[in-house]
């Protein structure tokens, strides 16, 4: 890992996580994945992450914000209804948890 740029290290880290996921899925459905297949999917995800970053930044900017929020991620998944539903469900759950945490804190205060 010595001598690698920050970007290269991140790329390797993403590739490692992609590889873990691919191997696990492959094991579960009893399919063998060639090493090149995993590298290609890794490359694809790396490039996709760049597009996702820029899209999210632009969405936030369009809404005159500098902080990316859950609405931006929902907009990102607009073309895939089931993915959008998953994101909405996750975002709702996180928001609910946060609210409950706050209520608990105020209860303790009063």
């Amino acid at each position: 890992m010595e001598g690698l740029s920050h970007e290269e290290k991140l790329r390797l880290s993403v590739l490692r996580d992609v590889s873990k996921i691919c191997q696990e899925v492959g094991g579960q459905i009893k399919m063998e994945l060639e090493k090149d297949v995993i590298n290609l999917i890794g490359e694809l995800i790396w490039k996709k992450m760049r597009v996702i970053s820029q899209d999210l930044e632009h969405f936030a900017k369009h809404a005159k914000r500098t902080t990316i929020n859950a609405e931006d991620v929902k907009l990102l998944t607009r073309r895939n209804p089931s993915l959008r539903a998953t994101v909405c469900e996750m975002a709702d759950k996180a928001a609910k948890k946060k609210r409950q945490g706050k209520e608990k804190a105020t209860e303790e205060l009063s």
Binding site: L10, M49, S53, Q54, E57, T66, T67
Partner: peptide, 12 residues
């Protein structure tokens, strides 16, 4: 990775 690709350094 996201930070790396943001154009504006103010983006959070």
């Amino acid at each position: 990775v996201l930070k790396l690709h943001f154009v504006d350094s103010k983006t959070r």
